[in-house]
Design a protein around this nucleic acid. Structure first.
Length: 533
RNA sequence: GGCGGAGUAGCUCAGCUGGUUAGAGCGGCGGAAUCAUAAUCCGUAGGUCGGGGGUUCAAGUCCCUCCUCCGCUACCA
């Protein structure tokens, strides 16, 4: 049985339609999951929506809607996003799902059994928008002397009975965790922030609310619903079957990595492991806080910022693969990045259409025309061929896997495109179109060499651009069982050629987009215009 | 205020534990080629590696200091 690998995205709060940040996280997580599948691992990818909390209830009410019915709609946008962007999730867990309620209650009871939950009174300034209490001294003054949270959201003086979690008990255990598992929090800069926070002392955490009922009811405590983070985090368990411990859960927990935004690192790196320790469950191996995707003008794509670009619109306009490729190629995973339509077009044209797509096109076309569409025979390799094999082979079997393994996604793509460049340099140096007249057999060998390399590169990049890669591999007759790192490195070419496989008329893989430019193109009509949004 | 990031070619960025002429991509410029999605390949970038000081035979790469931007966090009030 192959190694299990369990990865999650954060569970999105669907108080609006998904923005580019949600798309980025889902795409990155999917790419990692797909990579692990190519490595032969048994993968589970869980994503979903966190639908509880006063904010959702209020938004629904102000829209004159039933809360659940409203949540259904909002959640569906996130699910659609995953479908549209080719995110290969195994489970889309909603916190409103009865199965999830069961899981949350089981976790709660386990924490209670450890003596970590107690009832007390909580009073303070509560911000509905932030779903958090603030101390008097944290408040800022808005216009007309109105009290506002540090985030500038309205606050109300609220007194409620609340369950508390003995977070204070876990300070030492958490610090021990961080020091025994240096990779628990990544990237490094996030870890420092968490360390500082925990070292500064932990207060017990209020983990239930009585001011609304849209949430998971606290067992045996009528009127209380769980604090949203308790049940949101629990999706990582319920998504693989918890509270049932046999089967999926037993096999996949603990998670290999939780992919989250840098803004919620604390919940995942402090509260979450504390909850799990309390419940007597194993801890995830890693929490990775990625950066934000900023608009060209530098504006932050915040949850409530309202200036969020529509990721589905962009994907539809420029292509899902192109959009995925851009985000993972251009942005150093873990750091903030920026996007613009021009940047998407530039990347897509230069690397997908011109470098890789065109490499495949020119190679397959020559085979199609010169070899009657049959895969040409190999008549002994030269040093040049061997050099290319070595470079491409090393890239797909060492460099790219190592980069993916350490979640250095943009470096993985960088290594890939460098190998593509090498193939283009090779085809130009060998000039099979010239060999056609002088040394037909050598031409055959050159085209066969490229064929092998292109298939290997297509497999290696398939986690990033699954649709295009799979279309190309289909066209090339690569069997499904060869579409993984081991398979594509094996000797499949000659058997395929000898099987009498013939190419169809090759077709362009990725279109080149034109884009408004100051400089005039010699013949702009040759470019395809992207569809209007 | 504390802690932590970032500041490298026009643009976007690589540069691990200090060591030959500081790198890549894009753009620009010049050439080659014409199989291919007017795509490709080769050559070319005269960059005070934010400023200043220091350690060293040798510093984007270590130390000090200053400036700018960002993140986490605190406090005075």
């Amino acid at each position: 049985m192959s190694d299990p690998f369990y990865i999650t995205t954060a569970i999105a709060y669907p108080n609006g339609k998904p923005h580019i940040g949600h798309a980025y996280e889902a795409i990155a997580t999917d790419a990692i999951a797909r990579f692990q599948r190519l490595m032969g691992r048994d993968v589970r990818l869980v994503t979903g929506t966190d639908e509880h909390g006063l904010k959702m209830a209020q938004t629904a009410r102000s829209a004159g809607r039933e809360t659940l019915e409203f949540a259904d709609e909002m959640s569906s946008y996130f699910k659609e996003m995953c479908e549209s962007l080719n995110v290969s999730y195994d489970c889309f867990m909603r916190t409103s799902d009865p199965r999830h309620h069961e899981a949350s209650i089981a976790l709660w009871k386990a924490m209670e059994a450890s003596g970590d939950l107690y009832l007390d009174r909580y009073e303070g300034w509560y911000s509905v928008r932030d779903e958090a209490y603030y101390g008097e001294e944290e408040l800022i003054e808005g216009e007309g002397g109105v009290k506002l949270s540090p985030q500038g959201t309205p606050v109300d003086w609220t007194v409620e009975e609340s369950w508390f979690f003995r977070l204070s008990r876990y300070q030492d255990k958490l610090l021990e965790l961080y020091s025994n598992h240096p990779d628990f929090i990544r990237p490094e800069s996030r870890k420092n922030e968490v360390l500082r926070f925990v070292e500064g002392g932990l207060k017990d955490l209020s983990v239930s609310r009585t001011s609304f009922d849209w949430g998971v009811p606290v067992p045996g405590s009528p009127g209380h619903v769980m604090y949203v983070w308790v049940d949101a985090l629990t999706t990582y368990l319920s998504g693989i079957g918890f509270p049932a411990k046999d089967g999926e859960f037993n096999r996949f927990w603990p998670a290999n990595v939780h992919i989250i935004g840098k803004d919620i690192v604390r919940f995942h790196a402090v509260y979450w492991p504390a909850f799990l320790m309390s419940a007597g469950l194993p801890l995830p191996k890693q929490v990775f806080g990625h950066g934000f995707i900023l608009a060209r003008d530098g504006a932050k794509m915040g949850k409530s910022a309202g200036n969020a670009a529509d990721p589905l619109g962009l994907a539809e306009r420029y292509g899902v693969d192109q959009f995925r490729y851009f985000l993972l190629r251009e942005v150093n995973f873990g750091q903030d990045g920026s996007w613009s339509e021009e940047a998407i077009v530039t990347r897509s044209n230069a690397e997908l259409a011109n470098s890789f797509g065109n490499l495949a096109q020119r190679t397959l076309s020559q085979i199609f025309k010169n070899c009657d569409a049959y895969l040409p025979a190999i008549h002994g390799h030269t040093k040049d061929d061997e050099a290319l094999f070595e470079l491409v082979g090393k890239t797909i079997s060492e460099t790219i896997p190592a980069a993916f393994e350490s979640l250095a996604l943009s470096q993985a793509v960088e290594a890939w495109i460098a190998a593509v460049f090498a193939c283009n340099a090779y085809i130009d140096a060998q000039a099979p179109w010239a060999l056609k007249k002088t040394d037909f057999e050598r031409m055959e060998t050159v085209l066969a060499t490229l064929y092998i390399c292109i298939a290997q590169l297509a497999v290696a990049i398939s986690p990033i651009i699954p649709a295009g890669a799979s279309k190309l591999l289909d066209n090339m007759g690569i069997l499904p069982e060869l579409r993984n790192f081991n398979g594509i490195a094996s000797h499949w070419y000659s058997p395929l050629a000898e099987s009498g496989f013939r190419l169809e008329q090759p077709q362009g893989l990725f279109p080149g987009w034109s884009f408004r430019r100051t400089k005039r193109r010699p013949d702009a009509s040759r470019f395809t215009l992207p569809p209007e949004l």
